[in-house]
Every structure is written in C-alpha cells, then in structure tokens.
Design a binder for these strands. Structure first.
Length: 292
DNA sequence: CTAGGATCCTGTCAGC
DNA sequence: TGCTGACAGGATCCTA
C-alpha cells in the first residue's frame, strides 16, 4: 500500500510524537511480523526516524535500529495516553478509528507516553531488528535506486533502456530502477506523461522519459504536501471511509469517469500483473508517427 | 541474463 | 444465505 509519499508522511508524523521516547515493552502478536531479538530494543530510546524508499528505519540508542516495511496493508498508529494525541498512517482502514489492539494488530510498542501499533491485514509487512551500522547493507535497502528527485532525465532514460522489452509500468515499479513509485503513482505518472503503461520501455523517447520523471515528481510531491492533512482528514472522517486518493488521483480507481483532459472514459486494464488505470485517448499504445 | 507469473496472507466484493 | 473466484497502494522467488 503505502508508497513513498505515505511513508514520508508517516515518518514526519511519528517524528513529531515519538522522538526521545523510550520503548518500554514490545508485544509480538504475530511471529512472522517481527524479525530479530525484541529484547535488544526494549529499554532503548528512539533517536531518529529515517526513510529508505518505502521502508522506515527507527534509530535507537544502543547502536541498534529497527526497519519497518508496511508492504501492501501495513499501518502505524500512535495513540497517546489519555487520548491527548493520535496519529495514523498507512493502508486506510477503519483500524485508524477503532479501539486498539484489534484483530490486525501484529506488534505493540509500549512507549513512555503512548503506544505505537503495527497493524497489517495481510502480514506482508514486517519489523526487523538490525544494528544501526548495518542498515545500509540490508538486502532491501542496498539495492534501492535513487528517488526521482535525485535522478536526471538522461540517467532515467538510460535506466529504462536497460529493460527494452519490459512494459514501462513494470520497469518504473522496480525499486532498483527508480525508488518510490508504487501502483498508484506509477499510473498517475504515466497519465501525466501521456504514456501507455504497456509500451516496451525501449520505445520510450528521451523526451518522454523526461516527462515521465517529471510526472513522478509532481504527483508524489503533491501527495506529500497534502499528506499531513490527508491522515488527519481520514481520522476526523468519523466512520466514513477515507477517500483521500480522490483529492489528487486523475486515473487511479476512476474507471468509468471522464478524463479531465479530454473527457474520454478512464479504463481499467491489466499490465504487469497489476490493475492499471489509463485514459485510452491520452495514452496511446502505438506511438504516433513522427510529424503527427 | 531477461521477463513474466506464482507466491506470501487476510478480507471484501461481485456473481451465481 | 452460502459458496466461489478475483482482486488488492509490495516485493521476492521460481521458471522458461
């Protein structure tokens, strides 16, 4: 679920609540969700929260860290004692509003001033204890490519050309090619650049690659900038489903609605094994002949 | 090596 | 109502 903007929003939010707090006790409710010795981090203080792509790293005293990856359905929900404060981020579900722990709670971190819940419906996400000095050697973190803001157009173009026969959508979802995009922002960035997701990456021109990289930055920045209010809005929604995606998504989950550029109906198709949303008029599969 | 599909797991929803 | 299959905001492993 959470892609780069959501994870960054969670990082910023939790930094505001959890820094300098002590991890007093950890309850692991699902063994699969917690990797490593929990007693190593009990009693330590949270000194920093970093982000590597879609993974969060909590640095602790004692030269130890914990990496948390939310994968598809992970959530981090912080509740302060006496309801003084709360923060929720990740896969949007009613768990944001309910009494916790609930059925999907996998790990509970009891902190000095509140409680941090790691919820995860599908159990794909995890918490992993790693010595701080070894974080950047972790197999996941090690192979991450730069984020779109740290890449220039030509570099991005060359990265696409390394997989000339793969669908361009599959290539931009690969965190070793460019870091941060997931299913939502991949669709949104391709729509921005007017590129059909099933086109071979090798057919993307330098100009198109530049537009696609720009699209990735634009859609993710917009989401990060509205991210804080996003989470707050959801929690305040009081029973109604969070639909913050609709605030900025032009194609994602908008099948059947008109494209805001041309009015043509948005379609949902399948590309690279993933549900994929396009405007069939703006995003042509065949490249038009040069000279229009 | 590449590209595509299956897989981990639980819950929800559409269709019979 | 109950069953069945498809699908899901991710990443890895297996196969051809």
């Amino acid at each position: 679920m959470p892609e780069l903007p959501e994870v960054e929003t969670i990082r910023r939010g939790l930094c505001g609540f959890c820094l300098q707090q002590k991890i007093k006790h950890i309850t692991v409710k699902c063994d699969k969700s917690f990797i490593g010795p929990q007693e190593v981090i009990e009693g330590q203080y949270i000194t920093n929260i970093r982000r590597f792509g879609k993974a969060l790293v909590f640095d602790l005293t004692g030269n130890v860290s914990m990496m948390i990856h939310l994968r598809m359905t992970g959530q981090l929900i912080y509740r302060e004692k006496g309801q003084k404060a709360s923060f929720a981020g990740g896969h949007p579900t009613d768990s944001f509003l309910h009494e916790l722990p609930d059925k999907q709670t996998r790990v509970i971190f009891e902190l000095s001033k509140g409680t941090l819940f790691f919820n995860d419906q599908r159990k794909f996400g995890f918490v992993k204890v790693i010595p701080t000095a070894e974080i950047e050697e972790d197999s996941f973190i090690k192979k991450l490519a730069p984020e779109p803001w740290d890449m220039d157009d030509l570099d991005f173009y060359h990265r696409l050309q390394k997989h000339p026969n793969s669908c361009v959508k599959a290539v931009i979802l690969d965190q070793a090619i460019v870091c941060g995009l997931g299913n939502i922002y991949a669709d949104e960035a391709l729509y921005y650049a007017k590129i059909h997701p099933a086109r071979p990456a090798g057919s993307i021109t330098k100009k198109e690659a530049g537009l696609l990289l720009e699209g990735a930055k634009v859609v993710m920045e917009a989401s990060i900038n509205s991210g804080g209010s996003t989470m707050a809005t959801y929690v305040k929604a009081d029973g109604t489903k969070g639909d913050y995606l609709r605030l900025f998504a032009k194609v994602f989950r908008r099948e059947g609605e008109p494209c805001e550029r041309c009015g043509c109906e948005i379609e949902k198709i399948r590309v690279a094994g993933r549900g994929t949303h396009i405007c069939p008029h703006c995003q042509l599969k065949k490249t038009r002949k040069a000279g229009k």
